[in-house]
Nucleic acid binder design. Sequence first.
DNA 1: CCAAAGTATTTTGTATTGCAAGGTACTAAA
DNA 2: TTTAGTACCTTGCAATACAAAATACTTTGG
Lengths: 110, 110
Amino acid sequence: MNSQLKRGTLELLALCVVSRGDCYGYELVNRISKCMEITEGTIYPLMKRLRDGGLIDSYLEESPEGPPRKYYKITDAGNDELKRLEDEWTRFSESVNMLLKGEFSDESDK
Amino acid sequence: MNSQLKRGTLELLALCVVSRGDCYGYELVNRISKCMEITEGTIYPLMKRLRDGGLIDSYLEESPEGPPRKYYKITDAGNDELKRLEDEWTRFSESVNMLLKGEFSDESDK
DNA sequence: CCAAAGTATTTTGTATTGCAAGGTACTAAA
DNA sequence: TTTAGTACCTTGCAATACAAAATACTTTGG
């Protein structure tokens, strides 16, 4: 899968998943992996960026198996950003689909 | 507009536009600009990559106004790649939309 | 004739970010 | 003890959108 395509959408997807319920990195990787190839090397740095940007908070919780889990929780700013990104994605993908269908290039050139 | 979103799709869009008829860089910028912010600094390097990859050919033609135009023409390999990218885009955007709608994350976790 | 504006191409440099690769650490089972 | 599964984090690289600037041609107006 073309990794370039994912740029700009992973932030949206991560925020979206977290907005439906707190979850930890490893879990996030497994969830998103269900529909799209993704690894930890992508998610952990991404979550750090989101946290640095104040879009998510995090807290530690012990795990019944393995090391403690760092849970992520969306903030108000994160919810706002989620809406904005969702909108942006919708507009963007519709533009691409229109251009692919040729609904932009057939009149009023130049 | 989030420039990261465009990554991976511009190649598809450029191939698609060129596949509908030979056109030169400046024209391509104007056409794609109708539906998406784009500048020469993006298109010219992109066309060079496509040409280097054998997906398009190019030829010079004099212009009635200004310097000569470099027209781009899609190759057979370019048409194949166009189909592949279109497919990839469709699958990808549907995955994103499904995840956004929550149709992936509600069963069989862990 | 000269300046400005529109057309057209190209190059350089920078910022972003997906991801491979590798490391740490804990628990449980073999 | 070793292995496997869970869980986290970091380093470094590759790809690429795009701002910015340089070049060059033509036409038009003063």
